[in-house]
């Protein structure tokens, strides 16, 4: 039953992209899209992008909140980079630190790594097991726990609810 639900979710997601790419005013395009997506789902049984997504009301609300948190972090990181680049002294203090994540799902980890790359002054370099190695443009602590608290926890709070 769970797998069936995930398939439906993936079908709706692919259909949304197809409709955005073409348009809604041609019936044959929509019929062709439905057929192609069904064939894709039949032949690629393991193509489950959202296999970890929890389908509850709370996770939907958290997803929408997460988009805003992410956009705010993106804008802040850009202002941060702008000040650093425009400053003639180039105030950087870089280094690679190690942080730990408590997420279990693969999709959640992918989104977490992407979000870390787009937040102020951090860039994911390598992932090994539960640990991320992060290039930090302004290292303030080398301790694993404290670095995890500063970099990861603000996103983890949301992603834990969304992906479990």
């Amino acid at each position: 039953m769970k797998i069936f639900k995930q398939r439906i979710l993936l079908l709706l997601f692919l259909m949304l992209f197809w409709v955005l790419l073409t348009s809604l005013d041609r019936q044959e395009l929509i019929a062709g899209g439905v057929i192609v997506i069904l064939l894709t789902l039949v032949f690629f049984r393991r193509a489950a992008v959202f296999s970890d997504f929890q389908i509850t009301l709370k996770s939907l609300i958290y997803s929408i909140a997460y988009i805003f948190v992410f956009l705010a972090a993106l804008v802040r990181s850009n202002l941060d980079i702008a000040f650093r680049v425009l400053n003639p002294k180039l105030p950087i203090n870089p280094g690679i630190v190690k942080v730990k994540t408590s997420l279990n799902s693969k999709t959640g980890r992918l989104i977490l790594a992407n979000s870390i790359t787009l937040t102020p002054g951090t860039l994911t370099v390598e992932t090994k097991g539960d640990y991320y190695y992060i290039h930090w443009i302004d290292v303030s602590t080398q301790d694993v726990e404290q670095a995890s608290h500063e970099i990861v926890s603000k996103f983890e709070k949301y992603l834990e609810v969304m992906f479990g």
């Binding site: 870089p94 787009l118 860039l123 443009i137």
Partner: peptide, 17 residues
């Protein structure tokens, strides 16, 4: 920026936004 990782930071973030 002085090395490739810092260049990547500037390049990725600024070009995305």
């Amino acid at each position: 920026m002085p090395d490739v990782y810092n260049r990547m930071q500037a390049g990725t973030k600024a070009t995305t936004l």
